[in-house]
């Protein structure tokens, strides 16, 4: 007799499809839409974009179907977030609804073997972006900031490489940012992702890489704008210089240089992005010149 999960459809990203097929014997599908109407459940194995697609499909099209999420990499925290970010017509569409939460989450550390080192480092940058932008968010309460300060201490002890412990901290960072907000790093990533992947299709640009590259300059802009970062570090005992060292390590100068023409071209859209508008410090129109000048540091 088959166990229930063996009757579920299995949707896995190309890099982990073989492993997923060995673990779950259910019917493989190449998109959530391929699940049959009477299918009792869907196992989605992949990154943040795939998990968000699966969450949205289940909530809006098959609310009775069970959903099991298996992140193939950490960073997005999509597996435990009520938020979905979808690509629509080249721009990002964000929805927040408890109905997006999956029924089960499975962390499968063996999948880390398929993650290239550079991709792993960028996923770490994604987690750092969630944690730092939520820590500075104007919508963060004392309680959320306190939890984030503790989380930042944990992040400082983790190497910027594939390590199963990242799944847990990634999930917690995502849950905390869902209760506050993110900021300019995410505003930039959401606006630039489509044009930069279109312009440089072979350079592996994506959300995590954009977050990693922009986190250091954005945090320095925040520091220049106001004393909020220093004040928060002092209040919650966050090691400012240790954090700056990590951000410098995540930054990639040549990749950053590649983004600048697009940053300038899309700056007015970035200013209007919902994430930018909940940044921890005020993002002024002239801040684009800060980013242009940063390249010469």
């Amino acid at each position: 007799m088959k166990s229930e999960v063996e009757t579920y459809s299995v949707w896995a990203s190309a890099s982990v499809r073989k492993l997923a097929g060995q673990r779950w014997q259910g019917r493989p599908v190449s998109s959530p839409e391929e699940t049959l109407g009477d299918c009792p459940g869907l196992v989605a194995v992949g990154g943040g974009r795939m998990m968000d697609q699966a969450k949205y499909f289940r909530a809006r099209r098959r609310p009775g179907m069970r959903l099991v999420l298996v992140p193939s990499i950490w960073g997005s925290g999509a597996e435990c977030s009520p938020i979905v970010v979808l690509n629509r017509g080249g721009s990002k569409h964000i929805e927040n609804d408890a109905a997006f939460l999956p029924d089960d989450v499975i962390y499968w550390p063996e999948l880390l073997q398929s993650v290239p080192p550079e991709r792993a480092r960028q996923a770490c940058g994604d987690v750092w972006s969630h944690a730092l932008e939520a820590f500075l968010s104007p919508l963060s309460s004392d309680e959320i900031q306190s939890q984030l300060a503790s989380l930042l201490g944990e992040l400082l002890r983790l190497p910027l490489m594939a390590d199963a412990r990242w799944f847990d901290v990634s999930a917690r960072a995502c849950q905390l940012q869902a209760r506050s907000s993110v900021g300019l790093v995410h505003g930039i990533a959401h606006v630039l992702e489509a044009p930069i992947t279109s312009q440089y299709p072979s350079d592996n640009w994506g959300h995590a890489k954009l977050c990693s590259v922009f986190l250091w300059p954005v945090m320095e802009l925040n520091r220049q704008n106001s004393s909020k970062w220093s004040d928060c570090c002092a209040q919650y005992k966050v090691d400012d210089s240790a954090v700056s060292s990590v951000l410098a390590e995540l930054h990639a100068r040549e990749a950053y240089r590649q983004t600048l023409p697009l940053l300038k071209e899309h700056w007015s859209r970035i200013l209007r992005d919902p994430c930018t508008r909940t940044n921890g410090t005020l993002v002024r129109q002239q801040a684009v010149s800060f980013f242009e000048g940063w390249v010469n540091r």
Partner: peptide, 9 residues
């Protein structure tokens, strides 16, 4: 939200 941040700064 952003106006409140700006007023503070």
């Amino acid at each position: 939200v952003s106006f409140a941040v700006g007023v503070q700064e």
